[in-house]
Amino acid sequence: MKSLFIILFMTAGFAYVTLLERRVLARMQVRIGPNRAGPFGLLQPVADGVKLIFKEELIPAYADKFVFVLAPVLTVIPALIITAVVPWGPQVMLFGRPVPLYLVDLNIGVLYIVAVTSISVYGIALAGWSSNNKYATMGGLRATAQMISYELALGLAMLAPVMMAGSMSMVDVVESQRTLPFIVLQPVAFLIYFMSSLAEINRAPFDMPEAEQELTAGYHTEYSGMKFALFFMAEYIKMIAVAMIGSTLFLGGYAWPLPPEWLGGFAGPINLLAKVLVWLFVIIWLRATLPRIRYDRLMFYGWKVLFPVALVNIVITAVVIVLVGG
């Protein structure tokens, strides 16, 4: 039941994030953006979807057919399930029964996220490879290299809240932020998380794999129709996921600033969603603002700056906590 909700939320969220992005971008570029379909263009995503369904799907000759079809599915699955461990709130009374507002509270929640993140690389790599297209291959490779490079920093950055909370359970992490979000104590880790998560989801200014000028459309050059939609979907869902996870780990998740028990427990989700929205806005804002960075700089940045800083951050955190006895 809750699973279904999450999936629906994510897909719907995806749809409106696309809209959000287009609108926000338009505003920033002093345009209007899609506003015809429905009020404020709210039905635009539906129109997009219908259009995509009826588009012709091409499977290039010489492509590995099975892998070609498999890749988009494989890309979207991790995106959909990654937020399963993110808690929305402690619990609410629903139809007279207490319902905890999280799907599962894994004791290894953070590990789960790291693991699922790794899986999402497969879809992209396979998509690039199976297309049998130079741009796609190149884009897939670049995306893969970039993602795994930043995954290290990402993983290390996510460790900081875990260390603060002393648990890998997302619920525990949130609960220990009731008074103070970790961003205050761990600004470095937060920054690292923010940047590497952008790279992880191939968003600007780290959207090298899709650099139109060099690579046409990157790994999904050969995709069209609903298969293309899946990649598109995955990307935007990942945006939401990243925002949710980041909010949970660093910004206090559902537990801050409003006490989550307010409003019969619904203050929790409100806390979270508010932060996610802000986060998404920032991401889009960045896209509109920052130019794309060069690929070698990108790799350099991940390996030679973020990774060591994250590592040092971990060690300092540990030393401080052990010495202070926190």
Binding site: L52, I53, K55, E57, V69, P72, V73, L74, V76, I77, L80, G225, M226, K227, A229, L230, M233
Partner: peptide, 8 residues
């Protein structure tokens, strides 16, 4: 995921 592909 499969549904979307099949629809297309």
């Amino acid at each position: 995921g499969v549904l979307v592909v099949v629809l297309g």
